[in-house]
Design a protein around this nucleic acid. Structure first.
Lengths: 198, 198, 198, 198
DNA sequence: GATGAATGAGTGTTCATTCAT
DNA sequence: AATGAATGAACACTCATTCAT
């Protein structure tokens, strides 16, 4: 198991350094200081390790409570805005922290349908939570009732994740705080949520 | 020049069929019914033809008036909403028509930084036009003055293009009209534009 | 010793299932439910186990009296024909029973000279007995005196074993009884042995 | 086409030298003095070249008239024996000349079912011709009427080819003339053909 | 005697690019 | 300008064997 862990760690470094396509099994094995063949004791292919790397990332995020978009428990309007902002900040910070890997994942998804699925499942969590939140807001009369919660959640998640990709993976410059602020404004506006100090 | 045109046409078909990475020069030459070596009389590499294919697409769009997001000339509120809807419809229809190529371009951009730039320039047109429109609306008191026009334009373009990619290139199901309707609502809401029958 | 026996049994199954070349040591160990390394406590290589498997087969045949071509003790002509038929039947039945292993052995012999020798030694028994029988028949005036007993024995054995291989290992269809009958007629004819009811 | 021919010639040398299994594509290309990749311009795999080598051998045999077992046109008894002897001699001389290749083919057939078929088709020619001859002899009352011509032909061909393999490919020593003489005697006896000077 | 993870050498195949004709 | 055969570098994967526990 120790060897396997070492390989996952090494693989993550190599994928971040070289991207998904240019990552070579030999390099991963070398980075983990094991023989090439040992790689195949634990993984069957490059796709296989990459899936393991992503799975570990997912676990780390769960343990770090990152996926938790903040508690939306109390009903004050001021907090609604704050809730959206916190969720966006958490998402963006996590993206920034794992930018190299996210870039590799985009590449993997562009090349291997298997990772399109993985990416979809990853975003599903956020989309589902957002859709639920939107529906709740609509029922409380706090969000535009004409919107389909599921589709709106998809669209707004697409907006945030694509902006994160452009900013952190591609390096299009945007100050972090401006990013959060804009995203949060657009998100709350888009749902026609009432402004804080309305 | 006829050979060159034939190669571009052939390349487009191959890129649509096989994607950017799996497209082979021999196949492009065969599809164009010329010898492999003739390819290199007109293009220096796969990147080179792909750029030519994208350039031709761009030209076709300009001639088809597709890039023209509708004239936003008159000041009636009703037309504002209509203007956004028309622009989105035009974008989405164009994306749907060229879905195979757009998928190839996403793949190319994931693999080759050169095409990240191309993609960026392509979207630049739409972003700039949107940013200008937003600024104009703000000056007329018809859009949220707190938004940075440039960043908001980027974000909303990201939203639309990503949704288009998911729907037409990846095949995540969404009825076309629902898509346009949702996108337009979110877009106008996000800017806090007044509703039609306000 | 129990482990060793288990490995030989397992190896036989694997060789029958996968052939000599495709048989893998790990599979043999797994089939015997021992660790891979344990294999090497008892055998030094794949060739080594395969030799052991063949040796055990040889022992089983001896104990089953299979190698015993029938007793050619009495001098009646009728029995001569019967003796040849019995020997052929015994040989062919044994081949049919062990067809999988024989196929593996042919493969091994095609690939490793060591098993050409083993195969030769295996057939030696039959050839020598046949040669002796031919010589005896010649001395009794019951077989063509112009034939070299040794070479004739080789040739006729080759005929029978090759037919057995084609029928049972390769699956070229031939009814068992037709096979025995033809082989016996050809064998007795070839030696110019007098017909039963001469 | 010149390159292809060179590759077939080179392949034949390599297959004879190293056998089917140990033959490496790089070696074949090097022997033909072309780049490794050029091999794949003409052949898709090792099996593919080997099939080409065997096909060329087949052609050469046909042109050399080797497959022609002598004309069995006149009805003299003396010539019957001679006809069988000539056919056997031709077969055995051809086998001796191509012993290295035949050894490789046995190996190929032991490893790849595709070549079991090829070998079968190769022998089919001889078997069919023999079967026809046997049937003719039976009709003229010159061969044992109890034998099935097809099966007898198979059996006697198996005998000759297996003896050829043992002698020329495996090097079990037997003088060439003794071999022909024995084989011919056994063959004519087996069919109960009348002796020359009966 | 048993374990089983680690070792690492070895090779078929692809395809963008060249260049003599 | 066209031809198309030739080039050759690059890399994943297998599996018999070892050896520290």
């Amino acid at each position: 198991m120790r060897t396997r862990d070492g390989l996952v760690t090494a693989a993550r470094r190599i994928f971040e350094r070289d991207g998904y396509l240019d990552a070579r099994i030999v390099d991963i094995a070398a980075e983990a200081k094991v023989a090439t063949g040992s790689f195949y004791t634990h993984f069957s292919s490059k796709e296989d390790v990459f899936a393991a790397v992503l799975a570990r990332l997912h676990d780390e995020m769960l343990h770090a409570g990152v996926s938790d978009g903040g508690d939306e428990s109390d009903g004050e309007r001021k907090d609604l805005w704050r809730g959206v902002e916190d969720a966006n900040r958490a998402y963006l910070e996590s993206y920034r922290r794992n930018a190299g890997l996210m870039a590799a994942m985009e590449q993997a998804a562009a090349v291997d349908p298997q990772f399109v699925r993985v990416r979809l499942e990853r975003s599903r969590v956020f989309i589902d939570r957002s859709a639920a939140a939107i529906a709740r807001l609509q029922q409380s009369g706090l969000a535009d009732p004409e919107l389909d919660p599921e589709i709106a959640a998809r669209a707004l998640s697409a907006m945030v994740s694509r902006l994160a990709y452009a900013t952190f993976a591609l390096g299009e410059s945007l100050p972090f705080d401006t990013l959060i602020d804009t995203v949060t404004k657009l998100w709350t506006n888009a749902l026609r949520m009432p402004r804080d100090r309305a």
